[in-house]
Simulated scan of single mutants.
Amino acid sequence: MILLAEPPESGPSSGDAPDGGHDPLAGAGGSAAGGPALDVALGPLLLRHGLGDAVDILRVHSPGPTAAFSRRDTLRPGYTRAAEVVRQAGFVPVVRPQGGSLAVYDQGSVVIDHVHRSGPAAPDPAARFAGFATMHAAMLARLGVDARIGPVPGEYCPGEYSINAAGAKLAGSAQRVTRDGWLFSTVLQVSGAARLRPVLTSAYAELGYPFDPATAGAIEDSVPAVTTAAVRAAVLAAYGVTGPAVRLPRAVLELLRS
């Protein structure tokens, strides 16, 4: 498995690579250069084109403020208004290729993008949801979270394999399956749920989806000492990543920008 390097989160040299060159993934809050729009485009690009001969590619990052709509959301009569609502709140509206419905996240989140290039194998998306939910819940349990698998009534981006604690959603996943393999994305909300609730409330009202703000939670609500850095480290351990991270090749970045 190849782990993509996460850029420095802040500072005047956040775009500088250790060798003095430019880190092509550098951006505010761990986002790809160009921000949330390129963040959501990177996974599908790697799924289609790959990265050398790697079968599995993992990116674990904390992005800038992002409002990730699904393609289904864009068909709702209130989509244009919802996009404007999140933009006014400081979140960049993007359309992700994975399924589900609107998810809002920011620097208090840890996003896992796992690309698996298996070729045209028969997909088994339900089993994949179940397997990753089990792994992520066990990972959170090791951090002291009473993590449960299952939907929470009134949650945002509802799903059978949401991860929750004390009646609030902490994590959700979505996936994309193509002839090249699959992209499985998970958002773990570590801190700052209070920042997200009003944005979700307004946007979901415009989209016409039911939503209970109390169901939007964060890991810090039950384990205050847990940080995004600790969660990222736990993710790498859960995925068995032991080798060094690699920077995104410049040629891939140029393809992304094009």
Rank of each mutant, 00 (worst) to 15 (best):
M1C: 08
I2A: 10
A5L: 09
S13L: 15
S13Y: 14
G15L: 14
G15D: 13
G15Q: 12
D16P: 00
D19C: 10
D19G: 13
H22C: 12
D23Q: 08
P24I: 04
A28C: 12
A28F: 14
G29I: 01
A32W: 03
A33V: 13
G35Q: 02
L38P: 06
L38C: 12
V40L: 10
L45R: 07
H49Q: 14
D56Y: 00
I57S: 05
S62Q: 13
S62K: 05
D73Q: 11
D73H: 06
T74N: 05
L75H: 13
L75P: 03
R76S: 07
A83Q: 00
V85S: 05
V86F: 01
V92T: 14
P93L: 02
V94R: 01
Q98G: 15
G100K: 06
G100Y: 05
V104T: 05
G108K: 00
V110D: 04
V110Q: 07
V111A: 11
P123F: 05
P125Q: 10
P125E: 11
A126T: 13
R128Q: 14
T134W: 08
A137G: 05
L140T: 08
V152W: 00
V152Y: 00
G154L: 08
Y156Q: 00
G159W: 00
A165D: 04
A165W: 02
K169G: 04
K169W: 03
L170T: 08
L170P: 00
R176N: 03
T178I: 11
T178K: 04
W182F: 15
L188A: 08
S191L: 14
A193F: 01
A194R: 14
R195S: 06
L196S: 01
P198Y: 03
P198L: 06
S202D: 12
Y204F: 13
E206D: 11
L207C: 06
L207E: 03
G208Q: 08
F211K: 00
F211H: 11
A218K: 00
V223L: 09
V223P: 09
T228W: 01
A229G: 11
V231Y: 05
Y239L: 11
V241K: 07
G243R: 12
G243D: 15
G243S: 15
P244M: 09
A245Y: 04
A245I: 07
R247W: 03
L248Y: 06
L248R: 09
V252K: 12
L253Y: 13
L253S: 13
L255P: 08
L256Q: 01
L256I: 06
R257L: 15
S258K: 14
